[in-house]
């Protein structure tokens, strides 16, 4: 007795994953004597090709570093461990960075994980919904005391990425086809780079941040009040200038309009009155 549709499709799935006999008694013999493995191979190739093209589109720098042949092997291994759960392939592959962390063939290249992270972040901000950024003029009436208690929500088209490696230099080197001005060094720990990945208008930007500014923004993003974030920035560097960091954040449109905890009853502009202490 032939199986029902659910069983047929389950067996087809097993065949796609490599079980050559899963469909053996379900298929008509080919009129020209073609082996059943041939059509199965076509479908397996279609699956790998679709997934591979989708991932290669998301991770062009990673492809450039490992080469197309190795990337194809990586796709097979990733797809085996993390098959897509739905058909929105544009969203498939966000776990590739985590997968690379434990991927035995690449454990000697831990910086590739961070390259994958910024590529993934680049696509996340690219597809993020548009939200109106907060106009700093909105805060004009907030007293310094109340300003220190402000909490900000970040726009969805921004991501902060910290790396122990010169990840942006590596990314740009790969995207330039290895023709950059200078080959990034992977031996100096002073080359660690912290980034803001931001979509502004139509373009995705990768902006390098110094450590203090990064910590300040990361604190705000994780829910700290403005005063706490400033303290974190100052603890990181005595050269940290809160006013400049906040102006930078506003110039990038990092905060969501209407998404902050505020006081409204005073006239001083908090940007001019932030206490460094």
């Amino acid at each position: 007795m032939l199986p029902d549709l659910a069983e047929t499709q389950a067996r087809f799935g097993a065949a796609l994953r490599g079980d050559d006999d899963a469909l053996k008694d379900l298929l008509c013999p080919h009129r020209g004597g073609l082996a059943p493995a041939v059509p199965l191979t076509i479908h397996r190739n279609n699956v790998q090709s679709s997934v591979g093209q989708s991932l290669a589109g998301l991770y062009p720098a990673l492809v450039a570093f490992v080469g197309e042949v190795f990337f194809a092997r990586l796709v097979v291994d990733f797809h085996r461990d993390f098959p897509p759960l739905h058909g929105h392939l544009v969203d498939y592959g966000d776990r590739l960075g985590d997968f690379l962390r434990d991927y035995a063939p690449l454990t000697d290249y831990p910086w590739l994980v961070d390259v994958a992270r910024i590529e993934s972040a680049g696509f996340e901000v690219y597809k993020a919904p548009e939200l109106k950024p907060l106009d700093p003029a909105t805060l004009a009436g907030v007293t310094p005391e109340k300003a220190s208690l402000l909490h900000f929500h970040f726009v969805p088209c921004a991501r902060l990425i910290a790396s122990l490696y010169p990840v942006l230099s590596l990314y740009r080197y790969a995207m330039a086809g290895g023709d950059g001005d200078e080959t990034p060094s992977l031996t100096r720990h002073t080359d660690c780079q912290n980034l803001l990945v931001l979509r502004r208008d139509e373009a995705t930007e990768f902006i390098l941040l110094d450590s203090a500014r990064f910590i300040f923004l990361q604190s705000l993003q994780s829910g700290a009040a403005l005063a706490e974030a400033i303290a974190a920035g100052l603890a990181s560097s005595q050269h940290f200038v809160p006013e400049e960091a906040l102006k930078f954040a506003f110039s990038c449109g990092l905060f969501v309009a209407g998404e902050y905890a505020s006081g409204h009853d005073c006239s001083a502009n908090p940007l001019n009155n932030i206490n460094r202490g």
Partner: peptide, 24 residues
């Protein structure tokens, strides 16, 4: 079809042309 067992197979896979497949 492309989905079975909670997985998505990135291909347009063939159906058996049966009454049951037509129902689905």
């Amino acid at each position: 079809w492309s989905r079975e067992g909670g997985r998505y197979h990135a291909d347009l896979l063939p159906l058996p042309y049966t009454r049951e497949a037509l129902d689905c």
